[in-house]
Write a protein that binds this DNA or RNA. Sequence first.
DNA 1: AGTAGCTAGATAGTGGCAGTATCTTCCAGG
DNA 2: CCTGGAAGATACTGCCACTATCTAGCTACT
Lengths: 224, 224
Amino acid sequence: MKISELSRTTGVPVASIKYFRRQGLLPAGKATAATLAEYGQEHVQRLRLIKALTTLGGLSIAATRDVLTAVDQAHSTDSALGAVSYALPVPVAESPVGDAGREAEIASAAEAEVADLIAAMDWQTPGASPHVEGLTAALRELRRLDADYRPGELVAYAELARSIARLDLDRAAAFDDAPEALAEQAVIVFALSAPVLELLRRLAQEDQVRRRIPSLPGDGPRTG
Amino acid sequence: MKISELSRTTGVPVASIKYFRRQGLLPAGKATAATLAEYGQEHVQRLRLIKALTTLGGLSIAATRDVLTAVDQAHSTDSALGAVSYALPVPVAESPVGDAGREAEIASAAEAEVADLIAAMDWQTPGASPHVEGLTAALRELRRLDADYRPGELVAYAELARSIARLDLDRAAAFDDAPEALAEQAVIVFALSAPVLELLRRLAQEDQVRRRIPSLPGDGPRTG
DNA sequence: AGTAGCTAGATAGTGGCAGTATCTTCCAGG
DNA sequence: CCTGGAAGATACTGCCACTATCTAGCTACT
């Protein structure tokens, strides 16, 4: 298939396909001549995955490249899952604040909170995990807003997160017998389930609000 | 407090403060003269919230403005929660694809999936909810990748989402007696808990991977 | 053989976003 | 009365994700 056909099949403009190749997201086609290359089904699938990761998953081009590189290098279940998990961006950046004393207090409280949580959950996580750092940073941020979790709340959320992770792993494991599809499936489960879960949470919140407050207007809680 | 002091207190550059004002995220200070305005504690708090929403919550300036507008207009628990929930961006954009027949099939399957889910969960959600639309779009995208949920899986996730939503609502309800802080708390719970939850999920996934696959290298599932 | 039509690869340009800097006018406080 | 900020407007910057253009070369049809 020529690049123009690949473009037609996937709906991705030729210029974008070239861009993705330059950025290392898409392997080059098999060159049949100096100015002609042949693309196959794997390119179609890869483009679909790229599109899903960037639009649905909200990943940047750089993050997408990292994830796809992990996919390509993974050969077993564990390496696929682990590599992909680590390649996904951690959604936290720090705010600069002035008060040094309060900052120190916040930082140590957040660290203790995370340590307690990991102990309570008996989680097997390396200390250097970016997720641990990210969580600590997120809890710091919430503390700065005086919106920290009360005792036990975080553990309650973590228990539910564990249940979700079990479902995730089951879902990924369903592809254990198709090695080359597995890494890709891991990506999908890990990176693309997040928005689905978030939407489910929003729907459930909406439902909860409506159930708890009987007096709601007909078709939406816009402003009451 | 003068703008320079506000800047020093919050760590936000003066130019950025002005920018946020222009964008309608921050109310103007009380003008004491043509070229002088007085800022108060509410501005400090608001700036903190803006920072948290944009960095931790990953919201754009426009989305942040929508959320804050909802906060300012909300006066009761339900309106606060509802307005904020609807103001948050729905994390889905559509991919264009060529094959019309397959597209139609995918679309109807996704819609049926969502309808079944809402029925199974007995969710009270208006048909026009952006979350319903977003979920449908997300499921379409997953179907395009042949990664759709097997029967029952989505409901299992939804049950967990419901439990999470209960925790969320409990958390927000803890501020029922502080009306002016409530809307803000709703924002924090709804918008800023998502990254925390996502990180918990990642940590739980990491733990699950390590538990299921005994033979992992010492300090991380990098590439195995 | 000739040529129209595509292709690869390189490079440059575009539009949106989130600030950041500058410029002018003007006032408060010493 | 003059210096150091402050307000508001406008312009500029850097990054990102494309998108367009340009050159050079092939291929397949006539």
